[in-house]
Design a binder for these strands. Structure first.
Length: 596
DNA sequence: TCAATGCCTG
DNA sequence: CAGGCATTGA
C-alpha cells in the first residue's frame, strides 16, 4: 500500500499516445511468437487441423493415462473404446509430425493433464473417502458437484441402471458419435480457415490500398497504420482459432472421459448418501452459476490487488474436468458437442460465422438470446465481431480478463492458459493502436473502463447516461452497458456515502463539536480511504474540487446526524440532493478511448 | 413504461 | 461489483 502523499507519485496520465516504450509493454500478441508466422504458411496442412490433431493427440494421451488411476478399472469394459480411440489417434498422428515448436503448448497440456488426473482421482475416491479428497482443491469442487448432482437426481425419477450389454452398445455408439463429431469439427474448421483466409486477403488488399493512398499523400508509413491493424487482426483470428480448436477438443474429450468413467464398474452406486459421478448432461448449471464462474475467472485474474474478498466456494473457474453446462435447451445451442445431439457441419459453421468462435453457451444477462443474435453487427460483420470480441485479457493492469461475445458467457470457461497469455490484451491493443481506426469498439466494459469510471467519479457523482456515452467512445452502448455503467456509479456513490456517514459519526463520537472542525484534506484518513477505492494505483492527481465536495458531504452528514435527522428513514435524500448539484465537468482528456 | 435511483444482499 | 427489488418521475 502506497500511503505516501499523493503529490509525490501522482502524475496526470498521458493522453494515451502510444510511444515506443509503451509498445514494449503491449501484450504477448504484439510480441514475436509462434503466431508471427503468416497464416498463409500453413497452406494445405491447415493451422486448424494441425492444432486439432495435436490437441487430440495430447488429450488422448492424457485421457489414457488418467484412466490408469481408476481403481480396478475394468479392462474388458474399456478396451473396445480405448482401442478404437488409439486407432483414431494413430491415424491422426500418421498425418503429421509433432514438432516441439511451442513449449507453452506442451506445458499447458501437461497442466491440463494433471488437472484431469486430479479430478478423476478425486471422483474415484469420492464415494467412500471422507477426509482425504478434501485436501485437494479440485477434489473439493468435484465433491460439491457430486453432491449437487446427487440432490438433483433425488428429485428426478431414478433412471434404470443400464445392463452391461446395453452399456457396451451405447459406449460403442457414443464412441462412434464422438469420432464423427471430431471429423465433423475438423471439416468445419477447414471451412472456417478458408473463411478467415478470405477475410484476411480482403483486408490485406484493403490495407494495401490504404498504404498506397498514404504514400501518395506523403504520409509516414508504419506508425499505427493499417498494416499494424491487419497484423493485430490476424493475431486475433489466429488466437481465436487456436482457442476454438482446443475448446472443442476439450469438450469432446471431457465427454469421452466422463462416459468412460460413468461406465466403469466403479461408478458409484446411487443412494441417498453417496456421491455420484456427474453425467455432464447439459443444462445443469444455472445462468447464475455460470456467471459466477465467469466472475470467478474475472476475480482470479485480477488477483488480490483487485479482489480481496474471499470467493465463494461455488465460484470457480471451470476446468477441463468440470462439466460445462448450458442453461438453455440443446436446440438453442448450435455450437455444442453433446454426443446426444450430433452436430451438423452447417449448424456449427452457421453458429461460428454468426456469433464467432467463442460460441456462447448462455444468454445475455439482460437481453434475450434471440435479441442478441439479431444484433445487426453480429449479422453483418461476423468476423469483425470476432475481432471485436476477442479481447482476452486486460494487460494494462496485468490481468487476464477474458470475455466472450458481449455480455455472454462463452466456452472460454474451458480456458487455455497459454492461449490466454499469448492472445494478450487485445482490448488494450485496440485502445492503444489502430484497432480504433477500424471502427472496432467493445461491447463489454473492461477493467480499464472501470478504472476510468472510478477516476471520473472524482469529477462527477451523478453522470447522465449521455455523459457516459460521450466519455466512453470506445464502448458500444446498449441498454445493458448503459445500466452497468450507471450501476457502477451507483456503487461508487454507495461506497462514498457510507464512508461519509462513517467518518461523520466518528467525528461526533470523537467529540468534535463544530462543523468547522470537520475537514477533508489529502492527509485525511477519509481521503486515504476514498483514494484507495477510486484511485488504487494512486497514479491520478485527485482534483481539489473533489476534496471540497467531500468536505461538504462530510459536513452535511455531520450536521444531519448532529441534529438527529438520521431518525428519519429518508434523511440521506436531502444530502444526496445537495451533493448531486456539485458535479463538475469531466476533463476532455477522459474522452479519449485510450485514456488509460 | 422505462430509465434512474437507492437499498439490500451475496 | 453485480443482481434483485421497490420506488420515483417523466
Amino acid at each position: 500500500m502506497n500511503l505516501s502523499p499523493p503529490e509525490h507519485s501522482m502524475h496526470k496520465p498521458s493522453d494515451g499516445c502510444v510511444d515506443g516504450s509503451k509498445a514494449e509493454h503491449l501484450l504477448p500478441c504484439y510480441r514475436r511468437s509462434r503466431y508471427d508466422e503468416p497464416l498463409a504458411s500453413y497452406h494445405s496442412g491447415s493451422i486448424i487441423s494441425h492444432l486439432l490433431r495435436k490437441t487430440i493427440h495430447n488429450k488422448l494421451t492424457s485421457l489414457d493415462n488418467s484412466l490408469l488411476y481408476l481403481p480396478s478399472s475394468n479392462a474388458s469394459g474399456l478396451d473396445p473404446e480405448s482401442n478404437s480411440i488409439d486407432d483414431f489417434a494413430r491415424d491422426d498422428q500418421s498425418c503429421l509430425s509433432f514438432k516441439d515448436e511451442d513449449l507453452s503448448v506442451s506445458e499447458h497440456l501437461q497442466a491440463k493433464r494433471a488437472r484431469v488426473e486430479n479430478i478423476i482421482r478425486g471422483m474415484a475416491a469420492s464415494p467412500n473417502a471422507d477426509g482425504e479428497a478434501e485436501s485437494e482443491c479440485e477434489a473439493v469442487r468435484c465433491r460439491r458437484d457430486l453432491l449437487k448432482e446427487n440432490k438433483r437426481k433425488q428429485r428426478l425419477p431414478q433412471h434404470q441402471e443400464p445392463t452391461q450389454s446395453n452399456a457396451k452398445t451405447s459406449k460403442d455408439e457414443e464412441c462412434h458419435k464422438l469420432k464423427e463429431q471430431l471429423q465433423s469439427m475438423q471439416r468445419l474448421l477447414h471451412q472456417l480457415q478458408e473463411k478467415i483466409s478470405h477475410v484476411h486477403d480482403q483486408n490485406y488488399s484493403e490495407s494495401e490500398e490504404r498504404e498506397d493512398a498514404r504514400s501518395e499523400l506523403s504520409m509516414e508509413p508504419g506508425g499505427f497504420g493499417s498494416d499494424r491493424a491487419m497484423k493485430n487482426l490476424k493475431e486475433t483470428l489466429k488466437c481465436e482459432l487456436t482457442r476454438t480448436v482446443s475448446e472443442s477438443v476439450d469438450m469432446v474429450f471431457k465427454k469421452l472421459s466422463m462416459t468412460l468413467l460413468n461406465q466403469s464398474p466403479h461408478s458409484p452406486e446411487y443412494s441417498e448418501n453417496e456421491k455420484r459421478i456427474p453425467d455432464d448432461s447439459p443444462s445443469e448449471l444455472s445462468d447464475d452459476e455460470i456467471v459466477k464462474a465467469r466472475s470467478a475467472e474475472h476475480f482470479e485474474s485480477h488477483g488480490p490487488e483487485h479482489q480481496t474478498e474471499a470467493l465463494s466456494l461455488v465460484v470457480r473457474k471451470p476446468s477441463l474436468s468440470q462439466a460445462v453446462k448450458r442453461p438453455f435447451p440443446l436446440h438453442q445451442t448450435p455450437f455444442q458437442f453433446g454426443y446426444n445431439a450430433p452436430l451438423h457441419d452447417s449448424q456449427i459453421l452457421e453458429h461460428l460465422l454468426k456469433y464467432g468462435p467463442h460460441s456462447t453457451f448462455s444468454a445475455m444477462p439482460c437481453l434475450p438470446a434471440s435479441l442478441e443474435r439479431s444484433s445487426p453487427d453480429s449479422m453483418e460483420h461476423p468476423w469483425e465481431s470476432v475481432a471485436m470480441r476477442s479481447k482476452l485479457s486486460s494487460g494494462h493492469l496485468g490481468q487476464h480478463h477474458r470475455v466472450g461475445p458481449p455480455g455472454l458467457v462463452s466456452v472460454d470457461a474451458l480456458c487455455l492458459p497459454h492461449v490466454k497469455m499469448e492472445c494478450g490484451d487485445l482490448q488494450s491493443m485496440a485502445e492503444r493502436s489502430s484497432f480504433m481506426s477500424l471502427n472496432i469498439s467493445f461491447e463489454r466494459l473492461t477493467p480499464n473502463h472501470l478504472k476510468k469510471a472510478k477516476l471520473m467519479f472524482f469529477y462527477t457523482r451523478y453522470p447522465s447516461s449521455n455523459l457516459l456515452k460521450n466519455f466512453f467512445p470506445d464502448v458500444k452502448f446498449n441498454r445493458c452497458i448503459t445500466s452497468q455503467l450507471i450501476k457502477w456509479f451507483s456503487n461508487f456513490r454507495e461506497f462514498y456515502y457510507i464512508q461519509m456517514e462513517k467518518f461523520a459519526r466518528q467525528a461526533i463520537i470523537d467529540g468534535v463539536n463544530d462543523v468547522k472542525d470537520v475537514s477533508v484534506t489529502r492527509e485525511s484518513e477519509l481521503f486515504r480511504v476514498l483514494n484507495m477505492h477510486y484511485n488504487k494505483a494512486n497514479d491520478f492527481q485527485v482534483p481539489d474540487r473533489f476534496l471540497e465536495v467531500a468536505e461538504i458531504t462530510l459536513h452535511e452528514f455531520y450536521s444531519a446526524i448532529s441534529l438527529s435527522k438520521d431518525s428519519d428513514p429518508s434523511w440521506k435524500k436531502a444530502i444526496y440532493k445537495v451533493i448531486c448539484k456539485l458535479d463538475s465537468d469531466v476533463p476532455e482528456d477522459f474522452k479519449s478511448p485510450s485514456y488509460l
